[in-house]
Amino acid sequence: MSKADRQLMIELENVDKFFGSFQALKGVNLTVGKGEKVVVCGPSGSGKSTLIRCINRLEQHNNGKIVVNGHELTGAVKDIDAVRREVGMVFQSFNLFPHLTVIDNLMLAPKLVRKTPKAENRKKAMRLLERVKIPEQADKWPSQLSGGQQQRVAIARALCMNPEIILFDEPTSALDPEMISEVLDVMIDLAREGMTMICVSHEMGFARSVADNVVFMDEGEIVESGPPGTFFDNPKNDRTKLFLKQILSH
């Protein structure tokens, strides 16, 4: 895609974020075009999660500018709700609502936020459960599912709101190894369908095959970024080289 055709979905300009006196993000700049997939990696505490949590305002940035699909994130509740309707999020710890069945987890937000009729919600929720390959679990409680199944439900729940963008915050880090691929497969399918995605992940195989752009963060800064080919085979920064050596060595 030529630069001129690139429709920007997310723009971060000089974003700073402080937790007390600790600076979690230091002047971060990042743009994500429609349909692009960005994988963010880096050591723990480097600000990866904070970065994506600022995009749907689970954290408020202190300085700089964040624009998501044309909405600038300011203090206005209206803008935040508008952004959150368009941005789905999948968490490391799934965060399924434990008191609702799988299908009700999927149907809650469309009911409350979009106010679409129940029958329509149900049909759509079932279609999405089929898409993540667990329609037979619809009436179970989240606690009855395996971690991989719960995470697939969480992805379906995010999709129920028809988001333009999905943020993944280490979606496979809490999973047993044998369940990682079932979740990554769903994410790869989504990527192929053209979803705009930002994914905090250390799944380098996934990054290599899916990402348009790989971003390496350390100590609150974006140290290096580039297409996976260049990033993995020809990293320029020493910190990136060290990080890649550490995580690819086993």
Binding site: R84, G88, F97, L108, A154
Partner: peptide, 8 residues
């Protein structure tokens, strides 16, 4: 947070 992220 998950509910907030869904726009609730």
């Amino acid at each position: 947070e998950a509910a907030a992220a869904l726009g609730i």
